[in-house]
Design a binder for these strands. Structure first.
Lengths: 205, 205
DNA sequence: CTAGAATTCAAACGAGCGTTTCAGCCTTGT
DNA sequence: ACAAGGCTGAAACGCTCGTTTGAATTCTAG
């Protein structure tokens, strides 16, 4: 199913990502994953140690770069003398939207991400917090600047809800085919505009 | 765990709903469900036939009344000589929000619902379509009236995304405790206002 | 070329899964 | 009081799960 010249680890990660997106973490078995990757069953435990570790690596592989891009975009926004809610939201949404429309398995990963949000999995939330809390923190600070009327408590749960709803929406966007006669970039920008408006309405009062 | 004077069927449904919300459909086993319900393992297959049927019944029990309320609310809206997007959205959101903040397991069920949306489970989507497509259809008609500039295709996938994002947001709302000094009703109305604004931004262009 | 490490492989492990069975228990109606 | 049918109980079915094992193979350095 996968080209044989990619490494075993990479093929396992690709297959796992795709199967987790379709069947969930509990629903996709290591036997399905290794069969789809054309790899021996034991390879997962050899290369990753356990299924739980494999799940974490599926996240790490994409989130490392995604969060770098988000922080870079946020840094650009913060450089401007005047910026608003929509700018901060853009720094959060656009990199993820690009991923969800990428040629490779990016769309599958965003669906995995949406699942993880919906699951409220404790173990997974800890992993995300341990590895990427600095990103959330920087965005929370920026949001607090552009939403000064919200107290910290209120801001935090609104961000939680909005980021979940956004992730869900982006997971769906990946599936939707763009209208004919519209370039990939136009379609993405239009989607970003909608999502940002969508999220802004949820954050402002 | 459950009061013994409730019927076996009801206790199974309650426990299943709660465990499906926490661990997913594949993640929660019938042994966990029956143990939490203080019921024999075989009772599930006796009363429901299979795990799949049990899942369907968990949905049916809540969705029958929820969708009735939604349709009743929509009928009220349609009676008015002039109504807008926010009115239609209100008919969709308010009954679900009431459920997610109900005393009984309603909050758990909305989390189950959010999971089901995120999973894109084919079997489940078929069940929902078979049993409740008339509700979606009536709402789609009403939405088409207040959003005449969107063609049918565009409207349908936007409704899909918005309803998913709304369900996700409502699942989270159920967990959030209201600010002190605010009545249950006030809190719910405020949440409904936010969600409706949120969704309206995603539907309008 | 060859020793040693890294990787792959087939096979098996115990545990947990959904489901089935059937004996026994209640609860009805007569 | 008693038969019948609805329901519960303990046990077992075959199957799939994640993981482990140890031998076979491939890769890599000296």
């Amino acid at each position: 199913m996968n080209a044989p010249h990619f490494s075993t680890k990479q093929r396992i990660l690709d297959s796992a990502e795709s199967l987790f997106a379709r069947h969930g973490f509990a629903g996709a078995s290591l036997r399905q994953v290794t069969a789809s990757a054309n790899v021996n069953l034991a390879a997962v435990n050899y290369h990753f140690g356990s299924k739980e570790n494999l799940i974490n690596e599926v996240f790490r592989r994409r989130l490392d770069s995604l969060n770098e891009e988000r922080l870079a975009a946020l840094a650009e926004v913060l450089k401007q003398p005047r910026f608003g809610l929509e700018d901060v939201l853009g720094a959060f949404v656009r990199p993820a939207l690009a991923l969800s429309m990428a040629e490779d398995g990016g769309a599958g990963f965003v669906r995995v991400l949406a699942r993880a949000f919906a699951e409220h999995n404790e173990r997974l939330r800890k992993f995300l917090h341990d590895n990427y809390s600095h990103v959330l923190k920087q965005f929370a600070t920026a949001f607090a600047q552009v939403l000064p009327h919200l107290d910290k408590q209120e801001l935090y749960w609104r961000l939680d809800i909005v980021s979940g709803a956004l992730t869900y929406a982006m997971a769906d966007f990946g599936v939707i085919k763009r209208r004919p006669g519209m370039s990939e970039l136009q379609h993405r920008d239009l989607a970003a505009e909608h999502l940002i408006k969508f999220a802004a309405a949820g954050l402002r009062t």
